[in-house]
């Protein structure tokens, strides 16, 4: 009896003392935190992907609350949660919702083994950055995909995977949150975040090769040769031609698809459009024989409904490309070796 009593008293006292200590410590060392940070963090997806540019969701929440003191959270966006989450964040912070266009990662290279023959064999570390520093790569194209899958490894949403057949990464548009990690992971800046477009429909030049047309064509039969035909047919001034490479400005593109038809190399691809109705009459010119020069295999990009390519004579392209005066930029950001200074 006595033993039990002593035990109860001792343990009870111990508990009391510790509780009092804990209480005092909690009061003394309490950290003042804006309660809204926790509220914002609660609505965030908690994927901690860093896609917003802040260290995790907590960091993003802190940044949002801090920015709200200035009255606006413009420029801050959670790529994973998208508009729905940002609306909630704005609500918590008592601000007007910020419009942000949904984006998606686009792989701007179609250089599969069939289109871009391999000319050498890389035997080093299977890492895109190392391969990029080693040399121009296994093919004649020094701008295109190295195929070692750094982007796929960087994706935390399983939205990118390497297609073993083409050796190129493919984007699963439903899973892609446009967090931008793959963009940073690619040493050749092939992946671009482009506006999703209405119903996911959009036009893009799937090539980043800045060489002159003749060099590009030798390396890859589906690369942009900078012939400028797309620029000529575009009525909306949406195509920029720089360094022998066309680029479609998504803000100006009206999805008329004329450039796609005009492109002799099939570097311009229309994504997520319904299949085109076959034209009733065959083209009148004798150049209709030209399709022989076209690749047998249709460009493979995730979820692309490949339209039947318009026959365009390929020959006409080369004089135009010769007229391009720009010298191609050599790879700008490869590591310069400074072995023995």
């Amino acid at each position: 009896m006595n033993v039990i009593l002593v035990a109860v008293i001792v343990l009870g006292l111990l508990g009391l003392i510790l509780a009092a200590l804990l209480f005092l410590i909690a009061k003394k060392f309490a950290v003042e935190e804006d309660p809204r940070i926790a509220q914002v963090a609660d609505v965030l997806p908690q994927a901690n992907c860093g896609g917003c540019g802040f260290p995790g969701c907590q960091g993003f929440a802190e940044a949002c609350v801090k920015a709200s003191a200035q009255g606006s959270i413009e420029g801050k966006s959670c790529p994973v949660g998208g508009k729905a989450v940002m609306d909630k964040v704005s609500e918590i912070l008592g601000l007007a919702a910020v419009e942000a266009e949904p984006k998606v990662a686009v792989v701007r290279c179609q250089g599969s083994c069939a289109h871009r023959p391999r000319t050498s064999e890389y035997v080093g570390v299977k890492n895109c950055h190392v391969a990029n520093a080693t040399s121009g790569g296994e093919t004649g194209c020094f701008f295109g995909c190295l195929g070692l899958g750094e982007c796929a490894a960087s994706c935390s949403f399983g939205a990118l995977h390497m297609n073993p057949e083409t050796g190129l990464p493919e984007v699963d548009e439903e899973k892609c949150t446009a967090c931008g990690r793959c963009v940073k992971a690619c040493p050749r800046h092939i992946i671009e975040l482009r506006p999703m477009g209405k119903k996911g429909r959009r036009m893009s030049v799937l090539c980043v090769n800045k060489e002159k047309g003749a060099v590009t064509r030798k390396a890859c039969d589906i690369g942009c040769i900078g012939c400028g035909k797309c620029q000529k047919v575009c009525e909306f001034d949406a195509i920029i031609l720089e360094n022998n490479l066309a680029y479609i400005d998504p803000a100006k593109c009206r999805l008329c698809r004329k450039c796609e038809e005009a492109c002799p190399q099939h570097s311009i691809v229309a994504m997520n459009f319904p299949p085109r109705k076959p034209k009733p009459e065959a083209p009148a010119q004798p150049a209709a024989a030209a399709p022989a020069a076209q690749p047998a295999e249709a460009p493979k990009v995730a979820k692309v409904e490949t339209p039947t390519p318009e026959p365009v004579p390929v020959k006409a392209a080369s004089p135009v490309s010769e007229a391009m005066k720009e010298m191609p930029n050599p790879m700008s950001d490869q590591t310069q070796q400074e072995t023995q200074k």
């Binding site: 391999r118 050498s120 064999e121 890389y122 035997v123 080093g124 080693t134």
Partner: peptide, 8 residues
């Protein structure tokens, strides 16, 4: 055969 490429 194709030439092999690697770093030193």
């Amino acid at each position: 055969n194709k030439l092999k490429i690697s770093l030193s």
